[in-house]
Design a protein around this nucleic acid. Structure first.
Length: 530
RNA sequence: GGGCCCGUAGCUCAGUCUGGCUAGAGCACCGGCCUUUUAAGCCGGGUGGCGCGGGUUCGAAUCCCGUCGGGCCCGCCA
């Protein structure tokens, strides 16, 4: 059958690659990098989600598969992230797994960072096998590949030059040793390689940065000269993937276009030096974060998956990452309600409530929905409710009001935005998302309300006439009549009512709103305006 | 200097890979419903011919070449 969704198409490609392999795959493995040097943002989460989706796609095709999330925790620290203590500057240049966790809750800085992403992944519903790159080196998993590359480092240098026009590796070994004296990794250079050992000298310097202060920090080597095992260092990125792909028998890895060059080089290294057909790739455009000042500074102003999940469901998050691979996507908080509604629309299409005349498009949207549901779509159509509308409602019904949930539910039921039977826990979650959004993003000013004597008088008359047994319609009429009798334009009086009750100029139909909130409570509120 | 992506209705976009129904959706907008608000409701309306110019084809938004506009990445390092 013809495949119409990108995940399924990639499985076809993975199977095509399989044809070329001498050694066939028992297990189909997808991989993604798990950042460990900075705060993991939504783009890092995108890597993981996409790799996981291909893992699911492979499984769906009846193939045995695995997904490895590999933490690049032997990379050196280059920048002190915003919101981190200044003394972290001393650790610039050290592998992140050798740096103490500045917050003291994990074994290392690197572990702290990757755990943030892993937490996000768990919340998004992504399962993975965690692999520490530091571990791979320590255990010598890639020894064979490293030796091959070091032995022929000049050839590697030529390939790098050919693919990227960078000449430096025709002279240098593409490998960093962790200095046994000072512990830094980016200040060393190899002078010789023989008998599985590398000779090195720690005399290079490189430029780090403190993102908090914007200050650049020059880090210099300690001058130490020594000889050590290849397990005490790491390959340069331009060749590291290749070694990892071969050693771990990776079948698929997706990348952002920012590292396109590195991927090209690694593919070539893989083919020409390691005799291994590189994994299938998917190159995607990046998420451009324009989170603005809304994101709290304590989170380092980074748009993390956790931030999204405060305002939107895991489904909406997955949709963001699944929908398209190749747009530069501006991701900000305003994308969240959009995606909430889009998930609902997909559900409507999936369950046949929305007609899509183009068969192909319908099939595509249905498949997209299945992936959004991690290929386990619900049996029956879940709750769908316009998230924008919900945000409007949450905006006018103050958070502290009693029976807020019931009020919102009744408004939705009354306006037929909800079916008779629906999943209450789901609605509660959605109200929470919408409320968070209103509070943090769409907050409206609540002016101090001042009423003139005429308004006060009318309001007081209205209060006297208002009784428990009146229907919503009768209350609506009463407001209208009270306005007329007091020579106030109905329009203005309604406005007054809304401002008194909700603090905003408009709201749900006043009669129903008062009925729903309760006459008694309304009288209390009005009493404050004597 | 090298490369990627986008340009379809007022806005956000789908459709482009695998050319072919009368080019679609949502929002906005316009008209109507509502004898009592400023409609979160209901009914009805598509207002563009797919950035531009060539080419291929019986046929192009879809393929090819060129061009303009917008966005982004690489050209330190990882």
């Amino acid at each position: 059958m013809e495949k119409i969704f990108w995940c399924d198409k990639l499985v076809d490609e993975i199977l095509e690659r399989e044809e070329k392999l001498e050694e066939k795959s028992d297990v189909f493995i997808t991989e993604s990098g798990l950042g460990a040097s900075g705060i993991p943002h939504i783009g890092s989460a995108g890597d993981c989600v996409r790799a996981y989706m291909i893992f699911l796609a492979l499984k769906d095709r009846g193939l045995k598969s695995k997904y490895y999330a590999v933490s690049d925790d032997r990379d050196g620290l280059r920048k002190v992230p915003i919101g981190f203590p200044k003394n972290l500057e001393e650790s610039i240049g050290h592998p992140v797994s050798n740096i103490d966790d500045p917050f003291g809750c994990h074994r290392s800085y690197g572990e702290h960072m990757s755990s943030l992403l892993m937490d996000g992944m768990e919340k998004i519903g992504v399962e993975f096998e965690f692999i520490s790159s530091d571990d791979l080196y320590k255990k010598g998993v890639m020894d064979k590949e490293i030796k091959e590359i070091l032995k022929n480092h000049e050839k590697a240098g030529e390939i790098i030059k050919r693919e990227t026009l960078q000449e430096r590796y025709t002279e240098q070994y593409p490998f960093f040793v962790i200095c046994e004296n000072c512990g830094k990794i980016y200040t060393t250079r190899i002078t010789d390689f023989h008998n599985d050992k590398v000779e090195y000298v720690c005399d290079e310097s490189f430029l780090g940065k403190n993102s908090e202060t914007g200050e650049e920090i020059r880090v210099k080597g300690c001058g130490y000269r020594g000889e050590t095992s290849i397990r005490n260092g790491k390959l340069q990125w331009k060749v590291e993937f290749a070694a990892r792909w071969k050693a771990l028998k990776i079948n698929f890895e997706a990348f952002g276009k920012d590292i396109l060059d590195s991927v090209k080089v690694n593919d070539a290294i893989c083919r020409e030096m390691l005799n291994f057909e590189p994994p299938v790739h998917a190159l995607y455009e990046l998420f451009v974060e324009k989170s603005g000042e809304r994101i709290s500074k304590s989170k380092g102003n980074v748009f993390t998956p956790q931030v999204w999940l405060d305002y939107g469901s895991p489904e909406s998050m997955r949709l963001l990452m699944l929908k398209r691979l190749n747009y530069t996507r501006v991701v900000n908080l305003f994308e969240i309600p959009k995606h909430m509604d889009e998930v609902d629309r997909l559900a409507n299409v999936y369950f046949g409530e929305e007609e899509i005349s183009n068969e192909r498009e319908r099939a595509h949207l249905k498949r997209l929905y299945e992936y959004v549901c991690l290929l386990k779509p619900p049996e029956e159509k879940p709750l769908t409710v316009s998230h924008y509308t919900l945000i409007d409602i949450c905006n006018v019904i103050p958070k502290k009001i009693k029976n807020r949930y019931e009020i919102i539910k009744n408004i939705l039921l009354r306006t037929k935005l909800l079916p008779k039977d629906f999943d209450e826990s789901e609605l509660k979650k959605r109200i929470e998302y919408a409320t968070n959004f209103v509070e943090d993003v769409g907050k409206t000013k609540r002016e101090k309300i001042e009423l003139n004597s005429l308004e006060k008088k009318a309001l007081s008359i209205f209060k006297e006439k208002l009784t428990e047994d009146m229907s919503a319609e009768e209350i609506q009429t009463l407001i209208f009549e009270t306005a007329k009798e007091n020579e106030i334009k109905p329009r203005d009086f309604f406005k007054t009512i809304y401002r008194v009750i909700l603090g905003v100029d408009q709201g749900p139909r006043a009669g129903s709103l008062i009925k729903i909130i309760g006459v008694e409570r309304i009288k209390e509120i009005i009493s404050e305006y004597r």
